[in-house]
Design a protein around this nucleic acid. Structure first.
Ligand SMILES: [Mn+2]
Ligand SMILES: [Mn+2]
Ligand SMILES: [Zn+2]
Ligand SMILES: [Zn+2]
Lengths: 125, 125
DNA sequence: GTATTATTGCAATAAAATCGCAATAAACAT
DNA sequence: ATGTTTATTGCGATTTTATTGCAATAATAC
C-alpha cells in the first residue's frame, strides 16, 4: 500500500512534530486549523503507527495518545520502550527518556510495552 | 460510606480470588453463575478498587482488567507496583511478580503506575 | 489528460463504561 | 419480630472513544 501525501497527513504530522507532549485524538482535532473529519484523523494516526512514524500510548483513562517516534542521532541512544508520564494536574502525557527495564519468567516473550506513570509533573508541582 | 455484604459482592470477589489472571468485566460477567446487571458489576469492581482490595489495569485494548491485591505474608515482599503481562495468543492479563523500577526527572511525583508488557506467554509459546 | 486507487467525508455502528432514578434489601435499632 | 435508614441493585438511557461501509474525491503514475 503506497502512501500518498495529503494536507491532512501533513497537518497532523506537523502537530505531532511540534508537540512536546503526546496528543489525544481530541487534542489533535482541536489544535488543527483546517477542519478534518474525526474518522480521517483516526485513520491517519493509525497509518502513522503502522509505518512506525508514531507510537500509540493507552492511558488509564482508556484513551489513545500519540507521539512521534524520535530517532536520536546516535542510534545507540534510541530508546525503544520508554516510560510515559501522565500528569493528573495538567492532564498531559509525555514520553520520558527512561527505558522500561524488566525481566519476565521463562518462556515469556515480550513484543511491546505500554507503561504509564501517573502523578504530578514538574510544571505542576 | 459503610459497605454491605451482598451476594453480588461475594460472587465477584470469589471469582477474582480464585482466578490466576486479571479479569475483564466481560469475563467476570460470563463466569458468574448468578445473573448480575452490567452496571452493578462495574460498581462492585470500582468499590473494590476504592477499598484497596482490587487493582485495575488498563490494557492497550482500552479495556479495564481487575485483579486481587495480594498481600504477602512477609510485608517486605509486597509488590506495590508490578508489571502485567498481556498474552496476545490466549488474550489474558496476569500480574507478574516483577516490580516496576524507574527514575523520573526532578520535580516529578509518581502516584500510580499502569505497566503492561505484551507478547506471548509461556503456556502459548 | 487519463487511469488507478489511496484517501476522505459522512453517517452508521460498535464497544466500553457511567449515570439517574426508582425499587430492593442489608444492617441496625427498637 | 418489626420498623428505619440508606447502601446497593436493576433498568434504561447516555456518554465517550474508536471503527467501518460506502460513495465521492484527489494524489500519483503513465
Ligand atoms: Mn512515547
Ligand atoms: Mn496486578
Ligand atoms: Zn502537569
Ligand atoms: Zn498466553
Amino acid at each position: 500500500m503506497i502512501r500518498r501525501n495529503t494536507p491532512t497527513k501533513e497537518a497532523v504530522l506537523n502537530l505531532l512534530l511540534n508537540s512536546r507532549k503526546a496528543l489525544s485524538h481530541d487534542a489533535i482535532e482541536k489544535q488543527l486549523n483546517i477542519e478534518i473529519n474525526r474518522a480521517t484523523i483516526y485513520r491517519v494516526l493509525n497509518r502513522f503507527c503502522e509505518d512506525g512514524i508514531v507510537h500509540k500510548i493507552v492511558a488509564e483513562d482508556g484513551k489513545q495518545y500519540f507521539a512521534i517516534c524520535k530517532k536520536c542521532e546516535n542510534p545507540q541512544e534510541v530508546i525503544q520502550h520508554h516510560f510515559h508520564f501522565r500528569c493528573l494536574s495538567c492532564d498531559t502525557i509525555e514520553c520520558l527518556q527512561v527505558p522500561v527495564e524488566y525481566s519476565v519468567p521463562n518462556g515469556y516473550e515480550v513484543q511491546n510495552t505500554n507503561c504509564v506513570l501517573t502523578g504530578v509533573c514538574n510544571d505542576c508541582s
